[in-house]
Amino acid sequence: MTDNILVAEQVTKRFGGLVAIKDLTFAIPRQSIVSIIGPNGAGKTTFFNCITGFYTIDEGEMVFDGIRLNGREANQITRLGIARTFQNIRLFSNMTAIENIMVGQEPHLTSTWLGAIIGTPFSRREEVDAEQEARRLLRFVGLAGKGDAMARNLSYGDQRRLEIARALGSKPKLLLLDEPTAGMNPKETAETTQFIRHLRDELGITILLIEHDMRVVMGISEQVTVLDYGEKIAEGKPAEIQSNPRVIEAYLGRGAAASATINTAA
């Protein structure tokens, strides 16, 4: 199973009496783009939080690149090579774009406060390098020239890009994107979709995606997993998922618009 970068084995997460995730077994092949979809409240973001260590899982096992994640703190897990973005953008709003990315580089920075006060050549060198790397990442996500703007003053689309750049700062092996196209217009969505594929092809990282926009999901995913009430109800190639009766039922059973397709979900 070395071709899987992340393996979740019968993971269960409860909140009091509520079972948010139930017996979820799940694997992400290396260098693939995998999507998790499901109606609102299906447990997608909860699963993200379980991977990244924000929640401790109650049962089961989570293994990343051969390392057991159970019981590790979120910051330790990030240092192992998992980076994430948030559903509702959570940039450091009163810091500049460059500073945001430099915070993202934390796992690779080693200078200490004492070094900073004394101004050792090492910590100076590291700061300069980190800033250069941050500017490079800024260019990579298409935000060149906006490095000194406060994060909060960037446009919505730019903030999403900056969040990805910040996540890339940690040089992750696995990147978790929580609804990267939420709130975007069709043009921005298309650009972002392009960009995610480009990310994988260019940097060779694995991408796990939560997404409501079915055009994005079906367009770029190599594997789609469908959650409903914390359980996996389907898994497979996008085309298989689209015709799966249980998936259609899960979506329509929500009482959303009486559309026969799942295009309008979210």
Binding site: F54, F86, V103, G104
Partner: peptide
């Protein structure tokens, strides 16, 4: 700015 996000960046809060 955001303690959770800071933690997600690998900062030992």
């Amino acid at each position: 700015e955001d303690e959770d996000a800071a933690k997600a960046m690998g900062i030992d809060t």
